[in-house]
Amino acid sequence: VLAARERMHEAAEAGGELARRMARVGNFSRLQQAREIAITQDAAAQLARARLNAALEREQLARLMGLWGAQADFTLPDALPALPAADALRSGDDAEATALRERLDLRALRRDLDTTADRSGWAGVGSVFGDIGLSYSRNTATERASGHRETTRGWEVELPLPLFDWGGAATGRARAELQHSAAQLQDAAIRARSEARSHWLRYRTAWDLAHQQQAEALPLARFMQDEAVLRYNGMFISVWELLAEARRASQAVAAATEAQRDFWLAQTDLQLALTGTSPGAPADLPSAPTTPNAPSEGH
Rank of each mutant, 00 (worst) to 15 (best):
Q251T: 03
A254Q: 08
A14T: 05
D93L: 11
E227C: 02
A4D: 05
A170C: 05
E158H: 12
N53P: 01
Q60C: 06
R247F: 00
R138W: 04
E216G: 02
T171G: 04
H299I: 01
P84A: 12
R30H: 10
A182M: 08
G121P: 04
E6N: 06
P81V: 10
A217L: 06
R247Q: 00
S135R: 13
A19Y: 02
L201I: 11
Q213D: 14
Q41P: 00
A215S: 11
T116L: 15
D105V: 04
A183W: 05
Q184P: 08
A169N: 06
A189N: 01
A86W: 09
L185F: 09
D208E: 11
I237R: 06
S91T: 09
S120H: 10
W200T: 04
D208S: 12
S127M: 14
E177F: 03
L230T: 09
E258V: 11
A259I: 08
L272M: 13
D78H: 15
Q41R: 08
L134V: 03
H299C: 05
Q225L: 15
A48N: 01
D226T: 14
G92S: 09
T290V: 15
L209T: 10
R110Y: 07
E102N: 05
E10R: 12
E36S: 02
Q271T: 15
L161M: 11
Q60E: 13
D208I: 11
R248W: 00
A23W: 02
G298I: 06
N139W: 06
T171M: 06
Q214A: 13
A14W: 02
W122H: 05
R24G: 01
L230Q: 14
L265G: 03
Q71G: 11
L185S: 13
E102W: 14
T151W: 06
L64C: 08
E258W: 05
E13I: 01
S238M: 04
A256Y: 01
P160E: 09
R7G: 00
R20L: 06
A141N: 11
W155K: 07
T115C: 10
A273G: 06
